[in-house]
Nucleic acid binder design. Structure first.
Lengths: 203, 203
DNA sequence: TGTACATCAGTGAACGCGCGTTCACTGATGTAC
DNA sequence: TGTACATCAGTGAACGCGCGTTCACTGATGTAC
């Protein structure tokens, strides 16, 4: 009995706990300081472990940050799903709200997690096909929404094949430019109006 | 006479030469290694000067990199102007080529100068209103092109007010996503087709 | 033309630092007999 | 149940490093008289 208590007091991180603790702390530090100002030593020390312990879980710094990137990709998709799930009806009005929520949530996540967002779409996570797979969750949200919009006559057939590219690139670009301070937040509405109009076909 | 020769042999950087030499070398190193892997010492040493000399021209590292950013913004606009100037005719065909060149050159510059492009649109150059002013050169190219397209009936009046935002965000986003390896280069044509179609109004 | 002086872009040595990573180690845990 | 052994996640000290920045200095240049 006293044994169990001691274990609870000094857990020593059972089976992967340390790994995810390191991941979470690394993510926290990236969010605060930006990926370039995170050190292995600080991550380790904040988790209460020696610097060398990290190397039992991640081969090097880049791979730790890479894992953070995957984590964030995933959280972003989860966030978008949650935001879009707020409008689940089959009506046109609901479908349109879902479409807009898809865009809003993208930008909102980027703005609320600027440093993490930059990490995800930075050189450290480039060419990481695993993260592309995760990203597909977000991509599929967009495809699904556009399919619904198409079924409701909100997307011209001629435009349909390019709709995802147009929507993704413009929303991603806008997010970036807002983070850079080169566009004001207000453009989100303008852009979404513009996208809707554009997809449906003007006039 | 021998005096002039000596001066020519050991120039010692007359009036701002060192400053621009440092700037150019810093830019070169950013292009090669990325902004995060450039050090004041390396810049100085490659230019043939002691590390401390740099501080007679730039208060600190961030400001040096900030100046590099402005430089690149400017070069990008110059490059775009040159590319667009290849199609100077007043015909519809030429105007359309100019519009497409505007987009192509943006992406091409980004791809040929990935690290510099990332520096420009990264946190180091954020909120730098001077660079925004320079950026206006590129912005004005876009506005002018769209005005021409409008005059030629290639842009629906209803869409016109949002045209710049839609074009810039989507082309910027696409450039970023291509750099990240998340979109293939081929999307450039697709996106420009889509933009043209979209602006003109489908059907 | 020659002298005295101010200026200021350079030097080079040093500061203090935190970093990523390695390595021999220890000590708790789980397993086989 | 008890002993012997393998495993392996942790430690902590050390490695070697390059960094940004400071500071007292020097020596060439330009200016005033």
């Amino acid at each position: 009995m006293s044994l169990t208590v001691e274990r609870a007091e000094k857990p020593g991180y059972h089976h992967g706990d340390l790994q995810s603790a390191l991941l979470i702390e690394a993510k926290r530090l990236v969010a605060i300081n930006g990926a370039d100002h995170v050190s292995m030593r600080e991550v380790a020390s904040n988790v209460g472990v020696s610097p060398s312990a990290v190397y039992h879980h991640f081969p090097d710094k880049d791979s730790l940050l890479g894992e953070v990137g995957k984590l964030v990709f995933d959280e972003m998709a989860t966030f978008q799903e949650a935001e879009m799930a707020k409008f689940s009806g089959k009506s046109l009005a609901q479908a349109r709200k879902r479409f807009r929520a898809c865009g809003y949530s993208y930008v909102e996540f980027a703005r609320n997690n600027a440093n993490l967002f930059r990490l995800c779409f930075g050189p450290l996570c480039v060419g990481d096909h695993e993260s592309e797979k995760n990203d597909n969750r977000a991509w599929k949200l967009l495809v699904t929404t556009l399919d619904e919009m198409t079924a409701l006559g909100q997307v011209q057939p001629k435009i349909r094949p390019m709709a995802e590219i147009l929507a993704w690139t413009s929303i991603h670009g806008m997010s970036m430019l807002i983070l850079d301070g080169l566009l004001p937040v207000e453009v989100v509405d303008v852009l979404l109006d513009s996208l809707e109009l554009t997809l449906k076909g003007v006039k």
